[in-house]
């Protein structure tokens, strides 16, 4: 093509694409500042924790060095390994629970609410808490779930139980439950987003072709909302990994998650050990995140 063009006295394509090049240059110029900043802000913590995780632990702080002590310590201490396992256990329970809790909400709003205005209001109702303080939302569970909390008082008042149920607060079930409620917007949002994109005619076509409501749900709606599910799970998972306050407020500090170990070590000025935990957290997150990305091309979804 180039040879042909040149033989006819027309400039070669590479020489001609000045506008195209100019536009690409403009885009690169725009994208430069955010990219450099983000690379720095991402790079700083990652490089820091990796470097410091190899430092020598010391009574107060650390000494430069290159030792594996912190990792050996982590992987030979039963409680740390338990914590690692517990973190994943919580994730394995919370994520499906959240799908179960949030999918019907999105489904109802998307397919059963007819008025667009009402749809918007219900969605806003679900999103607004997300725009207020998560910390406050955690604290707000206390007067409800506590030993002398509202739920216990009601249950005792109507005679279902004789003494306060301890399981409501400072227990794993209450922790899992409040996590699911507090982060629900991360799940409802993406699921609704992909549900709203489903062409109604596809559903009607399926019904026309004789699929039952149940079959339509499983064979049409669920597969088409898979990207939304994956996105929601991704958001919840990453937030959960870096979170320590719910465990503190509602878990009562009985069972700890990785993030709590990190905060604890940091509080004791054991920075190399804390760094090792941080590195482990990142390393165990990577395969999960990669796995989730197999189900969704986030770039195309937006």
């Amino acid at each position: 093509m180039t040879a042909l063009a040149e033989s006819r006295g027309v400039p070669a394509p590479s020489a001609g694409m000045t506008l195209t090049k100019k536009r690409a240059r403009q885009a690169l110029l725009l994208v430069a500042a955010p990219t450099i900043l983000m690379a720095l802000f991402c790079g700083i913590p990652l490089v820091s924790v990796v470097v410091f995780s190899f430092y020598k632990p010391w009574a107060y702080g650390m000494k430069p060095g290159f030792v594996l002590d912190n990792y050996i310590e982590f992987f030979t201490t039963a409680t740390y390994l338990q914590t690692l396992g517990f973190t994943f256990l919580i994730a394995i329970i919370v994520l499906p629970l959240m799908v179960l809790l949030c999918y019907p909400v999105a489904y109802y709003v998307c397919f059963f609410v007819k008025s667009e205005r009402l749809k918007l209001y219900i969605l806003l109702l679900c999103i607004v808490p997300f725009w207020t303080s998560a910390l406050i939302r955690m604290v707000a569970w206390l007067p409800l779930l506590g030993r002398k909390g509202l739920i216990n008082q009601i249950l005792m008042g109507i005679g279902i139980i004789d003494e306060p149920a301890e399981i409501l607060l400072y227990s794993e079930p209450s922790m899992v439950f409040s996590m699911a409620i507090i982060w629900s917007v991360f799940m409802i949002g993406p699921i609704y987003f992909s549900m709203a994109k489903i062409d109604r005619q596809v559903i009607e076509a399926a019904r026309d072709l004789g699929a039952s409501a149940w079959t339509t749900f499983w064979k049409i709606i669920v597969p088409l909302t898979k990207p939304g599910l994956a996105t929601g799970i991704l958001f919840v998972f990453v937030v959960m990994m870096g979170e320590f306050a719910i465990q503190k407020f509602i878990g009562g500090g009985k069972t700890t998650m990785l993030a709590n170990v990190l905060i604890q070590q940091q509080g004791l000025l054991q920075w190399p050990a804390a760094s090792a935990v941080a590195v482990v957290m990142v390393l165990v997150s990577i395969p999960v995140i990669v796995l989730i990305f197999q189900f969704v091309n986030l770039r195309r979804e937006l």
Partner: peptide
Amino acid sequence: VGIMIPGVTVGLGHALF
């Protein structure tokens, strides 16, 4: 990646830096 790195890891990394 900014939201993928666990929150406490980001904090610790920046603090140590």
